[in-house]
Amino acid sequence: MFRVLIIFATSLCLCELVKGDCGVVTKQQWGGLQPTHVQYLPRPVDLVIIQHTVTPMCTTDTACMDRMRNTQDYHMDTLGWWDIGSSFYVGGNGKVYEGAGWLHVGAQPWATTNAPLASLSSETTKVIIVEILYYLVNDGPTTQQLNAVKALLKCGVESGHLTSNYHVVGHRQLIATVSPGRNLYREIRTWPEWMEDVSSIKN
């Protein structure tokens, strides 16, 4: 009987590992490569940056996993980054995909402390970057994508990855870019966590 209980408990643990923290599709599941460098992220984090990719929408599991692999290849092989750039990616299928994740600093140069292009102050480079898999300049995110982002951030607070009073900003508030797109930016400006004045977190 004791052996059966041990096997059952082990199975539950394995299920949680496969599922991933906060239900995200893990890097292993979508076929991601290991980073060439790791910079650990002190937690809990109090800043979340929302941005978007410049890629077509993916609406199926297969298409979104392909998009993740292609994005990582571009970031690492073409741009020379140590890993895929953002913490998490959200597909049109409503699923969240692990990038750098909750534990590691994203590989985007402007978001790292030692990069000449850094736009954030050294005290606020501890950020979670959530990127929507779509080119959202004129279109809006799907309801599934918005719900997935909100669920991820809620889970982040409950799991101790985010502070209870974290702030959300749009990518365009920090550097000269249209990201996260006009309609998505309009949406996040209605969120209670949105920070309008970012002067305190920029160099």
Rank of each mutant, 00 (worst) to 15 (best):
H161I: 00
N165V: 07
Y74V: 06
K150Y: 11
V48S: 11
V90Y: 03
T163C: 05
D61E: 14
Q72Y: 06
S122E: 11
Q145I: 07
Q51W: 01
V105M: 13
Q34G: 02
L79C: 05
I132E: 01
T143F: 02
N147S: 14
A148G: 06
T62I: 13
L136H: 04
Q51Y: 05
A63N: 05
L120F: 04
N93H: 08
N165I: 05
N147D: 14
L103M: 06
L41S: 02
G156T: 05
M76Q: 12
I129C: 03
Y134T: 12
P35V: 14
F88P: 02
D46M: 05
P42E: 11
H37V: 12
T125M: 07
L33D: 07
D77N: 09
E98L: 14
L133W: 02
M57N: 10
T62Q: 15
L133D: 07
I128W: 00
E131N: 10
R67V: 09
Q34S: 12
E123Y: 13
Y134C: 15
Q39A: 06
A63Y: 00
L152Y: 06
T62F: 02
K126A: 14
P42S: 12
T71Y: 04
I50G: 12
L146T: 06
Q144D: 08
L47M: 09
D66T: 09
G94T: 01
L120H: 00
M76N: 02
L152P: 04
T78W: 05
V137S: 10
G156P: 03
L133N: 11
E131L: 08
K150A: 15
S121T: 13
L136F: 11
K154E: 08
L117K: 09
E131Y: 00
V45Q: 05
